[in-house]
């Protein structure tokens, strides 16, 4: 459905915006390395089923997400390392890993390796933006491209919500994926404050600056 497709393309667009920002400005300043590593972990643990992916659409997106994230991490850790300031990227990710690990171990759909890792990836993704938002809060402002990146990334999961509602009514099984939906709503709520400032400032041509 349209929400699902727009969501996935928003996710892809966010990655292109981030790569464009890094290469255009020859700098990864303002980007949280920790968040990027968390996303890498999200993709690895969620796409363990990559070799068995039957849909070409999903297969292509999975390969694109994993490879582009690897490239982003390479750029931040090697090519543009001097522009990456670890002193601003101080969020304690062990809390996020603990949160996702605990929920994955307590409430997986099934106790299989794939299911536990899948649940871990869903919960971890829901909070993986926090180091980035924390960094943004410390600097108090962001370049336009960084703001566009975070907005596109946030829109992706927000668009999955109408997708789930649409699927609930259009599919005969009326199934609700409680883990994905709960985590997806949590993820979107975490962005809400950012979305508000993005909407009131950046979309009106102003700089992204916290009050």
């Amino acid at each position: 459905n349209i929400f699902r497709v727009l969501g996935d393309f928003s996710h892809l667009a966010s990655i292109f915006i981030l790569l464009h920002k890094i290469q255009q400005l020859k700098s990864c300043s303002g980007i949280s390395f920790k968040s990027q590593v968390l996303y890498m972990l999200v993709y690895i643990t969620r796409y363990l089923d990559l070799p068995w992916t039957s849909s070409p659409y999903n297969f292509i997106f999975k390969v694109l997400f994993i490879s582009s994230e690897l490239y982003i991490i390479y750029l931040m850790a090697r090519a543009y390392k001097p522009t990456n300031d670890p002193n601003l990227d101080t969020f304690h990710v062990e809390f996020l890993l603990g949160f996702a690990g605990l929920l994955a171990l307590l409430f997986p759909y099934k106790y299989t390796i794939l299911e536990v890792f899948w649940a871990f990836s869903i919960w971890l993704e829901s909070v993986a933006i926090l180091p980035q938002l924390f960094m943004l809060q410390r600097t108090g402002e962001a370049e336009a491209m960084t703001a566009h990146y975070i907005a596109a990334l946030g829109m992706y999961r927000a668009l999955y919500i109408p997708n789930w509602i649409y699927r609930y009514f259009s599919e005969p099984t009326h199934k609700v994926d409680t883990i994905a939906v709960t985590a997806g709503i949590l993820q979107t709520i975490l962005y809400s404050d950012f979305f508000w400032i993005y909407y009131t400032k950046v979309m009106r041509g102003e700089k992204f600056k916290l009050p």
Partner: peptide
């Protein structure tokens, strides 16, 4: 089967 169905998302 139940668990398989939702893995059609990214």
């Amino acid at each position: 089967k139940e668990a398989k169905a939702k893995k059609d998302e990214l």
